[in-house]
Design a protein around this nucleic acid. Structure first.
Lengths: 199, 199
DNA sequence: CGAGCGATTGAACGCTCTCAAAGTGAGTGG
DNA sequence: CCACTCACTTTGAGAGCGTTCAATCGCTCG
């Protein structure tokens, strides 16, 4: 069963019962956590092919919002539970996904806890270019479905700092920017070096 | 099979083949990631009863170091693989653990990306007191197996900032400190409020 | 009792945030 | 087609939180 969401729609909220589990088919999604006063931390950006939702928890642990018109191939919660208990390979696959997510989250803890603003932005761009490469993009500018505010909330920075760092990378010739939602990689080596941090 | 490690021993390193998977029986462990220049981010503290190591990856994604003399009940990698494929319930349990870890990691991303120094220290103490409570501790001062440097590397701060915030909480009467490795909770409500952030 | 390491405290600096203003681009209506 | 609007982005200047550097304290161990 496929479900559709408009841009800026909320797919699900923390604390609510799990209703959306499945594979993202079209569009992109941000998942995030909130503090009582509204401060936001994006914990992940999802793209077509990515799995969304938890087949383990009864209630969601974070919020999910569509960044663009989204299409999700949804599994009914009950039938997924049954499938998982019947097909060990499926559960194994889920375990693999969970471990990949955990490793990425911990890599991001390193970024949020110990990297400078420049390193964070460089790391973020590296990740995006890498993901784009895996989906067949080659050379051409890639599309940023999220705005500066959402990038900032992913990197633990402010929009101004993100903007400044992007400008810096642009004037250094590492990337080129077209209209704030399209970025092209110019010097991959240099970007990777900045992302890893001075050594 | 049980393996023993002395304090400050490295249980395993990132990139190395997985050799240690099992349950922590005695002592405590920190897991962490490193940047090329030595900056460190602690991604978890493990206590008796906690599962350690990844049954999925062939190589470790982080480092693990003993904070005190440690005893681990280790499963041989091959036999664990076999057990997991034979006993679906075991794999399900691992999946549950992975999801719990993932949620904690994302909660920590929120802490590292968006919380102030005071909120970070308060959240950390809340977590410790909560864990201690689950293991039967009641009221009495709890032991901090890690030093200030390791707390700082968990919270994305410096030792000086951690020390200052602890002193602040102490003089506010929220906690009391005995010799830098024993902390007692005095005002749980107030600590929880500080941890959540102003609202 | 002295050495040495970790923790605490103090003072000044700096990176990022905050506040503010100007620039840009997409969408709308005349 | 152009002027207008509005939201988002960029850029600038100043402030603040946490860091850095430095000195003192306190505990443990020889």
């Amino acid at each position: 069963m496929t479900r559709h969401f408009a841009a800026e729609d909320t797919l699900f909220s923390a604390e609510d019962p799990v209703t959306v589990i499945g594979t993202l088919v079209k569009g992109s999604v941000k998942t995030y956590k909130l503090l009582p006063d509204g401060r936001q931390q994006v914990v992940g950006f999802l793209f077509p092919g990515d799995f969304i939702g938890s087949a383990i928890f009864r209630t969601n642990r974070c919020f999910a919002e569509a960044l663009s018109p989204v299409e999700v191939c949804v599994f009914p919660h009950a039938s997924l539970q049954r499938l998982m208990s019947e097909i060990p390979a499926l559960e194994h696959q889920m375990l693999k996904l969970a471990h990949d997510d955990l490793d990425l989250a911990q890599e991001w803890m390193l970024l949020l806890g110990r990297k400078t603003a420049q390193e964070r932005v460089a790391t973020f761009l590296c990740l995006l270019f890498e993901k784009a490469k895996k989906r067949g993009h080659c050379g051409a500018p890639i599309d940023l479905p999220m705005n500066r505010s959402e990038i900032a909330d992913y990197l633990g920075l402010t929009i101004e700092t993100v903007s400044r760092q992007l400008s810096k990378l642009k004037s250094a010739g590492v990337i080129s920017i077209n209209g704030s939602h399209a970025i092209e990689l110019r010097k991959a080596d240099q970007l990777a070096e900045l992302a890893a941090g001075g050594d």
